[in-house]
Design a protein around this nucleic acid. Sequence first.
RNA 1: UGGGCUGGCCGGGCGACCGCGUCACUGCUUCGGGUUGAUCUCGAGGCGGUGUCGAGGAAGGUCCGGGCUCCACAGGACGAGGUGGUGGGUAACGCCCACCCGGGGUGACCCGCGGGAUCAGUGCCACAGAGAACAGACCGCCACCGGCUCCGUCUUCGGAUGGGGGCGGUGGUAAGGGUGAAACGGUGGUGCAAGAGACCACCAGCGCGACGGGCGACCGUCGUGGCUAGGCAAACCCCACCUGGAGCAAGACCAGACAGCGAGCGUUCGAGGGUGGUCCGCCCGAGCUCGUGGGUAGGUCGCUGGAGGGUGUCGGCAACGGCACCCGGAGAUGGAUGGUCGCCAACCGGGACGUCGUGAGGCGUCCCGGCGAACAGAACCCGGCCUAUGAGCCAGCCCAUCCG
Length: 130
Amino acid sequence: MLSSGNRLTSPVHFREVVRRGRRRGGDLLVVHLWASTSAPLPGNAPAGPRVGFVVSKAVGPAVTRNLVKRRLRHLCRDRIATLPAGSMLVVRALPAAANAGYDDLARELDRCLAQVGATKNLSAKAGISR
RNA sequence: UGGGCUGGCCGGGCGACCGCGUCACUGCUUCGGGUUGAUCUCGAGGCGGUGUCGAGGAAGGUCCGGGCUCCACAGGACGAGGUGGUGGGUAACGCCCACCCGGGGUGACCCGCGGGAUCAGUGCCACAGAGAACAGACCGCCACCGGCUCCGUCUUCGGAUGGGGGCGGUGGUAAGGGUGAAACGGUGGUGCAAGAGACCACCAGCGCGACGGGCGACCGUCGUGGCUAGGCAAACCCCACCUGGAGCAAGACCAGACAGCGAGCGUUCGAGGGUGGUCCGCCCGAGCUCGUGGGUAGGUCGCUGGAGGGUGUCGGCAACGGCACCCGGAGAUGGAUGGUCGCCAACCGGGACGUCGUGAGGCGUCCCGGCGAACAGAACCCGGCCUAUGAGCCAGCCCAUCCG
């Protein structure tokens, strides 16, 4: 689980990131990244990056949806340091993610993050997969 | 030993690294207040530390029943929906238990949407078949009539008469054939031209009455009647009983936002609403509707201890109930209870050894390999039902075979 400061909770934020963020997708998932170039949000938005997930019912029943969500959470927790401060990330899982293994999801997530421009020190983190 | 029936249980364990949520205590820090200031203290927030607890038997489907919350107390009529043997259990139920009736099985046992179809009425019974609900003559059987034909007898050779076969017509007949889920009781006899409950005996079944048993559904015995009555009410319908509606996005509180303008109707002669459907009745009532323009959707509570489980005992055939003692802690809200691995139980296959047995084979130990699981994730909470589910385990009972 992500620490509570790094969680994306507001529906407004979800909508803005998915609509305006930079998007890159693969067979398993789609990544939306919104970097804080302008003054983001009313209230006190903390500087840490925030991550949220979208796993629809097309992925599967509740058990497989939860499994996909937990794997993505742990993967993003290891990569939270590579994201720019103040940015917001939404990872949307596609139906094929239900049958993908942990390593498959890791590779796809790294590739998409690199293409979307969130590369701070990704090569060092690539050794996580066994 | 083999096969089967019923009920119940289990829903993996240990460990490593990295993590999450609730609650309690605590460290640092920010803001505000108590103070002029420091120490101290109160409240709110952020980042940490320690401890604690953290998914299921179905958490699922959302099919019933309740609790709880709100609604202008929910009254009547009609309508709508549900339930449907009897008795009990329960907060309640469409659930559970026991019994009755019907059906299936050698049996343990299982199955049943199980009120009413003569005593309210309407409707429907496909296909096949001659005929299917005021039944029905296709074949067959029988009688009579009219031709045809064959045989016998007599003959005055014109014919007469007896018998058989076949055709047509008229009528009788529901015993037989064949069709069907179902053909208007079954068997045997009397009877008849042939037949038929037309009549008789027994049996089955139906109605009525009496007696006996049972709380009751119902059962048993006896008498009697007419000889026989089809099915479908998951078709309309009738009868009995039940149901106010919406649902935790219920609902309550805090914070916060905005902006009006124009037109129409109305203020006890009442606009407009509520009461799940319609009408009556009841209640609220000074705003409502349309057009145009603008704005908010953050937090706290509800939120988990409840018809709760376990053991013993007593009552009861049982479901269940009384009493005593003990146990007990998920409460998330973009949604925690995990991610990545290792080992071992358990299971399957093969092999070796030991042991029991005449034998098929059983049991135990060890080794190797496989697999190491299925269905599935709380969202207000309970009681049920239904559906999904890997490998197994336990208990009782039944049938067959063998031994005594």
